[in-house]
Design a protein around this nucleic acid. Structure first.
Length: 602
RNA sequence: GCCCCUGUAGCUCAACGGACAGAGCAGCUGCCUUCUAAGCAGAAGGUUGUGGGUUCGAAUCCCGCCAGGGGCGCCA
């Protein structure tokens, strides 16, 4: 926002250095870390160190300070810069606050929801996330995946990339068949009516089926016979599915639809709008063709004649001496495909049909090896885009009692957490806002409950594992979603009471002595566009989550310390109202990128 | 055996190689007839796992070690 002033000053610095024969190192600008005044800063340590290396006998910190002081003199006065300071090797430029405050606030109010949006980058990115298995319910681990993927998609989109959202549900595999078998065998034509109840019911069936199919300790011969018979039935069902048997396929589609109904409902609740749906089952046949092609090209080795499978010796084919990607199977000895095979087929579709330049896989970090293998095989296969495949691995969510396990029924369901979140918000709500209508209360409870959940997930960096604890996830105090939402609500509350209709056009400036809290808010607001780019470049929603908190924090302090409606005079009142409106807008923009709603009241 | 991730306040976590390592929670002190107290202000809390190295400068980069987690040819 202050590129012009920065350029003028950089030019003067270069001029000084060339006049004095000082080789200037790259200038890196940051905002001044002291609060209360507003400006930008650069340092001359690198330049001084460069001199030191060239043989001059100098102390780097002292020399840096010396250069800084001389440069300060050289720069003199610059329009828009109120003062310049040379301290500890840092050159601090303080902005003339009325001018910059007006500039920031004007730009936010003019751009509105687009404030912070990056210029179009002419690159298409596909973000693949929301890959739960069908035939059972959506748990809190799926939730981390989905909210992380959605926030990332919003960030890269807002940063300027053409973005495609893709979901890849695992709708086939032995786990799915297990549920299908148990349903058909024991529960046929029974089913709960509710969307979520049905998913949870399928999960229950899965747990029962797994127990029946797993060998027990001290198994009697009768039990063993029965178990083996069940297993044979299950495998027969898989064979029939593979052969396209109509009965099994119909049953599979019907039950799959139950899960998809639940998934679609959850995505609706989370305000996630998928552009593309890939189903594992759809890439099964194309995957088999790819295996043939890879054998033809000499990339894969067919060991089936020796009773083996089709494998790719990845390291060997890449010419690597040390083991890195190892060897993996792409087709079972019985001719069926594996997850890896299907991922190859899926990547081909992404590149050839959707023309994506970059593909981001939001997948549990435990699948890191698998995806690296997939990318390596794509490269061997000849796909240039393979280098633009990126696995965004995130730490997995476990429970205080250990890892989640669908087959053992040890999961925390998203829907249960959400219901509990809403219950807790309603309890607070009835205490704090008894005057609210029932409809509004319910709406706000959803917004805040989901906001707390989303923030608790997104405020943890990708690489970190997470232990899910209800009380932490649903806290409404301190560094949480509701804290940020509350800042938005407070801003909104001031604006509602102001009765000013002309904020957009009001020709006011900030030519009074700004309170440090005001400057803090303005500075935070001005950083938003950079934070968008950083979060998108690093694929880290947490960066935005941290920023949203910092902005809300600055606003809360401002709110407490600085009167707005009761300002000394009308001019200050209008200026502050515009600032409040700008802060409200940027909080909303930040929350939107975190897939968190901004309630008007709470 | 090989590869990846993590180790920072009592707990959960931040910190583009840069200024005094910051928040929240828990505990302690204050602040609601004044724009929403889901808030604000303050005090307290640290040998950044450990030993070297690079650098003017290291929580950050490199090497070793220790501890925890994850992964490694017919699961996904």
């Amino acid at each position: 926002m202050f590129e012009k002033e920065q350029q003028i000053i950089e030019a003067k610095i270069r001029e000084f250095c060339s006049q004095n024969d000082i080789p200037l190192a790259e200038l890196k600008w940051t905002s001044i870390p002291f609060s209360g005044e507003w400006g930008m800063s650069t340092s001359f340590f690198a330049t001084a160190a460069h001199e030191a290396r060239s043989g001059k006998k100098i102390q780097v910190p002292q020399r840096a300070q010396e250069i800084t002081e001389q440069i300060k003199v050289q720069i003199g006065r610059v329009d828009g810069i109120s003062r310049i300071e040379a301290v500890k090797g840092y050159l601090n430029l303080y902005f003339s606050t009325p001018e910059y405050a007006r500039r920031v606030v004007d730009e936010v109010l003019a751009s509105g929801a687009d404030f912070g949006r990056g210029a179009a980058k002419n690159e298409r990115v596909m973000v693949e996330y929301a890959q739960p298995n069908t035939h059972h319910s959506f748990h809190i681990g799926h939730y981390r995946n989905t909210i992380l993927g959605e926030s990332l998609a919003r960030l890269v989109e807002f940063a300027g990339f053409d973005t495609i959202r893709a979901s890849y549900p695992g709708d086939i595999g032995l786990g799915v068949i297990t549920i299908l078998w148990a349903y058909d065998r024991f529960y046929k034509s029974q089913e709960p009516s509710g969307i979520h109840e049905r998913g949870q019911w399928l999960l229950k069936i899965y747990v029962e089926a797994t127990a029946m199919l797993e060998p027990k300790e001290n198994e009697t011969p009768e039990e063993k016979t029965k178990r083996e018979a069940y297993d044979a039935e299950r495998r027969e069902m898989y064979r029939k599915w593979d052969a396209g048997d109509k009965y099994v396929r119909d049953l599979w589609l019907k039950t799959r639809e139950w899960s998809l109904e639940e998934l679609r409902d959850i995505l609706r609740i989370l305000d996630v709008k998928m552009d593309v749906w890939f189903f594992e089952s759809e890439v099964d046949e194309p995957a088999k063709e790819i295996v043939e092609e890879l054998i033809q090209k000499g990339i894969a080795d067919d060991e089936r004649p020796q009773g083996g499978a089709v494998i790719v010796k990845i390291d060997e084919k890449l010419g690597l001496k040390k083991e890195k990607y190892r060897t993996n199977i792409i087709l079972r000895s019985d001719g069926t495909t594996l997850y890896l095979t299907k991922d190859l087929a899926l990547a081909k579709v992404k590149f050839e049909q959707y023309h994506v330049d970059r593909s981001i896989y939001v997948v549990d970090v435990r699948q890191s090896m698998h995806l690296q293998q997939a990318f390596a095989i794509l490269k061997l296969w000849g796909f240039k885009q393979a280098e633009k495949c990126y696995h965004l691995g995130y730490g997995f969510v476990s429970l205080p009692e250990g890892a989640m396990s669908a087959r053992r029924g040890r999961v925390v369901l998203f829907k249960d957490v959400m219901d509990e979140a809403i219950r807790r918000v309603l309890a607070v709500e009835s205490e704090k806002s008894p005057e609210m209508s029932e409809d509004e209360r319910m709406k706000v409870a959803h917004q805040i409950g989901l906001g707390a959940m989303a923030y608790s997930m997104l405020s943890v960096d990708n690489s970190r594992d997470m232990i899910f604890e209800m009380d932490n996830a649903l806290s409404f105090d301190g560094r949480t979603g509701p804290y940020i939402q509350n800042a938005y609500v407070r801003a909104n509350s001031i604006l509602k009471r102001s009765n000013v209709q002309t904020l957009q056009r009001s020709n006011v400036d900030f030519s009074y002595e700004l309170d440090p809290h005001e400057i803090e808010v303005i500075e935070k607001i001005s950083q938003f566009p950079d934070v968008v780019q950083q979060a998108a470049n690093e694929y880290r929603p947490m960066v935005m989550a941290n920023y949203a908190y910092d902005l809300a924090n600055a606003f809360h302090s401002f709110y407490h310390a600085v009167p707005v409606l009761q300002s000394e005079n009308e001019e200050i009142r209008l200026a502050r109202l515009r600032l409040v409106a700008a802060a409200k807008q940027v909080i909303a923009n930040a929350l939107r990128l975190l897939d968190i709603q901004a309630p008007e009241v709470m």
